[in-house]
Nucleic acid binder design. Structure first.
Lengths: 380, 380
DNA sequence: CCACTTAAGCAACGCTGTTGCCAAAGTGCA
DNA sequence: TGCACTTTGGCAACAGCGTTGCTTAAGTGG
C-alpha cells in the first residue's frame, strides 16, 4: 500500500487489506489481458497463498469483475483454470481539453476505448461555456452507451494545475483560468467523480499501463511547448504541489537566448528555435541533452517522445535523442541500456490516459485517498 | 505499504499487516521524540482505532521498544498517558568510507550517536585491506558498547554503486573497485546485515528523518565533486538501477567547457571552475540554476546544500541559489515557497545517515524486501 | 486400469482490527 | 465534601482476513 507519509494516515485494517489484495489481483488480471492468468500464477505474482487467491478471485467473480477463460494444457496433472478480467464490468470517461479541441473517450476496464468523440473547443471562451461543452461531451458519451456503469471522469488539461485540489493554475496563454476549481465544477455538473491532471501526466499514465509495460520512464511531449510526464517506481510522479514535470523551461544554456517565459536558455526555446530554422538535428540534440540529464538524475530506463513536432519526423528525433544518451553512456556516464521510443497514436492516448486516472485506483495504483469502509455491505 | 510494483510481490497477509502498523506507530513515536505521544494522537496519526493502538503499543512495550512517559494535563477527563520510544532498545552502525578517511558511528533507535570513531583510510589500498579496516571499525565500535543489540551496518560510499545488490561500480578515481561486492563481503566479515548506499543518499536520508522533517527535497553536495540525493514522497529516490542522483554532470551549458567526465558544460565543471577562479557568486548562480531546474522538474519544496565547498561560504551559496530560484518563481515559474538551507555538521551526518539505512525498515521506511514470516514465534 | 501428479475447494484455525461495554481518573459545580 | 460529567483505556466478544491440513477433481503415463 502506498506510503506517501508526511500526511494522510497510513494505518491498515482488514477492509483495507482486502481491498489492497483484490486490487493487486485485478492489476495482474489486467496485465494478463485476454489471455488470462491462472490462480497459481496470481499466487506467485502476489506472494499470497493459492487458497487466498482462490478466495479473492471468487469474490471478484461474484462481483462480475473476473471470469473463467478456459483451461491451460495439462503439465501432468489437473490443468489450470485460466481467469481473465471482464472488461465490460465498469467504464470510465477520459476527457482531453486542449487549446483548440476536445477529445472524449469511453474506455472499459481493460483500457480499451469503446466510444470516441471530438469537438472544437475554445479555451478562451467563458468558463461556463467550456464547462458546458465538457459536460455535454461526457453526457453524450454516456448516453451513447447506456447500461454501462461509469465510475468517473478523468480530465487532462494542458497548463499547470493542482491535481490534489482539482484547481487550474495559469494555463499558458489563458491566464483567466488561474484558480478555477474545474474538478468540483465538472463533478457537480456530471454527478460523477472527477480527477484532474496535466495532459503530459495522462499520456505518461497511458504509457505506463499500456503495452510496453513497467519500468521508470519519462514521457517528453514536444508540441507547441515542451513538457514531461515522469513515471517513477511505476507511478506518476507529481511532486509536493503536484506540479512536477516542468521540463521545457529547464535551463540548458546559461545566459542563452531569451525564452517566452522570461528565462534564458530554456530547452523549449532552444529546441523550438532550432526546429523553426529547419535544423532538426540540433533540435533533437537539444532535446536529447535534456533527456540525458533526466536519465542521469533519475536513473530511468526509458524515454518516450511524443507531440506534434516529434510526430513530424519521428526518426530524426529518436535518433538524435538516442545519440546523445548513448554518447554519454559510452563515456561512462549513466544511460546504458536506456531505450528511446515514440508514443505514437496522436492525441487520443492523452484522453485514454485521462480515463486511466479514474481506473488506476481500481487496480491499486495510487490515488486511493481516504478510502475507508465504503463497500457494498451486502454479500450473498 | 510500499508498492514498488513491476517487481516483487506486494500481497499483504496478517503478519505483514501487523508489521506495517507496528512500524507506523514506531515511526510516530520516533517523530514525537522525547516528548512522547498519546495513544489517541497515535490513533489519529495512523487512522486506526484507539483500541487497535492500545493493542499495538502493548506489544511494543512488551518488546521493550516503547515505554510510558508520564501524563498529559487533563482536559476535563482522565489525562492521556504519554508513550515514548525507548532509544536504547536497538542500535545500528553507520559507516562512511570516504576517499581519505573513515567515520563510524553507533546510533540508537532515535538516531542519536552514542559512539563515534574516525580513522584514516586509503581507498586506493587493496580491497582486503580496506575491508579489514572497515570491519575493524565496526567491531571496535560494538565492543566499546557491549550489551547493545546491533541490528546492522549501513555503509555510505562515494561512487556510483548498486544499492540493491550491494555492489560497487566505478568509484571516481578508483576504478579498481568496479564490481566489488562490498555488502556481501562486509556482511560475512561482521556477521551483521549490511546495507550499501551512496554518500549523498545517506546524507539525504539523515536530513529526511532528522529535524526539519518531511517534504520532498534535494540534497546537493558540493565538495570535490557535485552530487545529489533526492527525497521524493518521503523516501530516497534511487531509480531503476539505484543510480539516481547524478547531478554534477547535468549539462547546463550546451557545448560549454570540457568536463573531466568527457562531457561539455556540466554543472560540476562550471561550478568548480568559477569557484577556482574565485568567482563564488557565479559558482552559486550555476548551482542555483541547476537547483531551479530540479525544483521545476520534480516540484520539490526544499533544497539543502552541503559539502566542503559550500561550508567554506555558506551564506554566499544559500543566497546565490535562493536568488535564482526566487527569480524564476517571480517570473511565474515553479519554485514559490521553496526554502534553501545548508545541512551543516560536516561529514558526520553522512555516517549517521548510513546508520539510518539500517534503521529505516524498523520504521517502515522502504527497504523491507521480502520480509515474510520472520517473527520470534513465542509470546507470553 | 491403476499409480501418480497437479489444481482447487472445504473446514478449522490463528490472528488482525473493531465494537460494545465498563472501570479508572481526572474536572467542575453545588 | 460529594456528585455529575468528561475523557481515557482495557476487557471480552466478534467479524473477517489469509493460512493450514486435508479431500476431491481432473488430468497424464505406464
Amino acid at each position: 500500500m502506498n506510503r506517501s507519509r508526511t500526511k494522510a494516515p497510513a494505518g491498515v485494517n482488514l477492509p483495507a487489506l482486502r481491498h489492497h489484495n483484490a486490487a493487486l489481483v485485478l492489476d495482474l488480471l489486467r496485465a494478463a489481458g485476454a489471455e488470462g492468468i491462472s490462480r497459481l500464477e496470481l499466487a506467485e505474482g502476489t506472494g499470497l497463498t493459492p487458497q487466498a487467491v482462490s478466495k479473492i478471485t471468487a469474490r471478484l467473480r461474484e462481483d462480475g469483475l473476473a471470469a473463467g477463460a478456459g483451461l491451460r494444457p495439462s503439465t501432468g496433472g489437473k490443468p489450470r483454470t485460466v481467469l481473465r478480467l471482464v472488461p465490460d464490468a465498469q467504464f470510465a470517461v477520459g476527457l482531453h481539453l486542449d487549446r483548440d479541441g476536445l477529445t472524449a473517450v469511453l474506455v472499459d476496464l481493460a483500457g480499451r476505448p469503446v466510444a470516441v468523440a471530438t469537438a472544437p473547443l475554445d479555451l478562451g471562451a467563458p468558463a461556463e461555456r467550456v464547462l458546458a461543452d465538457a459536460a455535454d461531451a461526457v453526457r453524450d458519451l454516456c448516453a451513447a452507451e447506456p447500461h454501462k456503469p461509469v465510475i468517473g471522469v478523468g480530465v487532462a488539461v494542458p497548463g499547470p494545475l493542482d491535481h490534489r485540489d482539482g484547481v487550474l493554475h495559469r494555463v499558458t496563454g489563458f491566464p483567466r483560468w488561474d484558480g478555477y476549481p474545474l474538478r468540483a465544477a465538472l463533478a457537480e455538473r456530471t454527478g460523477l467523480p472527477v480527477v484532474l491532471d496535466k495532459d503530459t501526466n495522462a499520456a505518461a499514465l497511458a504509457l505506463a499501463l499500456g503495452g510496453a509495460g513497467g519500468g521508470d520512464f519519462a514521457y517528453l511531449h514536444l508540441g507547441t511547448g515542451l513538457g514531461a510526464g515522469l513515471v517513477l517506481g511505476g507511478e506518476v510522479h507529481r511532486g509536493a504541489r503536484t506540479g512536477a514535470g516542468e521540463f521545457g523551461h529547464q535551463t540548458l544554456q546559461l545566459d542563452g537566448p531569451l525564452c517566452g517565459c522570461g528565462g534564458r536558455g530554456c530547452i523549449e526555446a532552444l529546441c523550438l528555435a532550432a526546429e523553426a530554422r529547419g535544423d532538426r538535428g540540433e533540435a533533437a540534440r537539444v532535446l536529447g541533452t535534456g533527456a540525458a540529464n533526466l536519465v542521469g538524475l533519475l536513473d530511468i530506463d526509458r524515454v518516450v517522445l511524443g507531440g506534434r513536432t516529434v510526430a513530424a519526423d519521428e526518426d530524426a528525433y529518436v535518433r538524435g535523442v538516442r545519440a546523445v544518451i548513448e554518447e554519454r553512456a559510452a563515456r561512462g556516464g549513466a544511460g546504458a541500456g536506456v531505450t528511446v521510443t515514440v508514443a505514437g497514436g496522436g492525441d487520443r492516448p492523452v484522453a485514454e490516459g485521462a480515463a486511466q486516472l479514474v481506473l488506476a485506483p481500481v487496480f491499486g495504483r495510487v490515488g486511493e485517498e481516504k478510502r475507508v469502509g465504503e463497500e457494498k455491505a451486502d454479500r450473498g
